[in-house]
């Protein structure tokens, strides 16, 4: 089915990302083009509350990947790389001396994913309590516009081919214990920064 899709639509960036599952990050991991940080609609951004976010500390991270699978387990009651709202940089296969690391959604002040969603406020929504830019699964059509719009390389939104839905960090807004990735990281490498603490 995946192959059929690729054939019929050509290998767009979105398809590539979706098909890759745990995305492979290149040299530009974490890089973001400054131009893309300028909101498309400055006036609209002014009306959107800031969001809390998950902060990652590279000095504490043991790159065990437990956060990824806890995320998938909590969200989807299943584990698989494409079910996690956290992506993974596999950029040190053997050669070189780099760090395997989680790639987290930044919950941008100016959420390009939100603007790009054709069903804004229905499929890609803003949570008033946490500020999380989240996906309402029931309304997501799987068009992939949010993934295309994500300014990061690798995009921080995942895609499940089977359900044809985008999967994105929602800061576990409905979970009483807070973000599950933070809870399972016993290194303390992940911390939840509430929207009030956002710089």
């Amino acid at each position: 089915m995946v192959e059929d899709k690729k054939k019929s639509q050509g290998l767009s960036r979105r398809q590539f990302v979706a098909g890759a599952g745990a995305a492979v990050a290149g040299a530009a991991v974490g890089g973001v083009m400054a131009s893309q940080l300028v909101p498309r609609k400055a006036e609209a951004a002014a009306g959107i509350p800031k969001s809390g976010h998950i902060k990652w500390d590279p000095d504490k991270c043991a790159s065990c990947g437990r956060c990824l699978m806890a995320c998938a387990a909590y969200r989807e009651s299943a584990v698989a790389p494409q079910l996690s709202a956290i992506k993974w940089a596999e950029n040190d296969f053997l050669y070189g001396f780099r760090f395997r690391k989680p790639l987290l959604c930044k919950q941008c002040d100016s959420p390009e994913c939100y603007y790009a969603c054709p069903k804004k406020d229905e499929a890609l929504c803003i949570d008033s309590a946490t500020g999380a830019r989240y996906i309402n699964k029931d309304k997501c059509t799987g068009c992939g516009a949010c993934i295309e719009a994500c300014p990061f390389d690798v995009p921080r939104i995942n895609f499940d081919n089977e359900s044809n839905k985008a999967i994105k960090c929602d800061l576990c807004k409905d979970r009483p214990g807070g973000p599950v990735c933070v809870e399972v990281c016993d290194k303390g490498a992940l911390t939840f920064v509430p929207k009030e603490g956002r710089v």
Binding site: A70, A80, E183
Partner: peptide, 20 residues
């Protein structure tokens, strides 16, 4: 090569609790 296969978790919240 990881593909589209998913592995079900019977009781995720219980699992998280035990992991911690």
């Amino acid at each position: 090569k990881p593909g589209s296969h998913k592995v079900k978790i019977a009781n995720p919240e219980k699992l998280i609790k035990e992991v911690v």
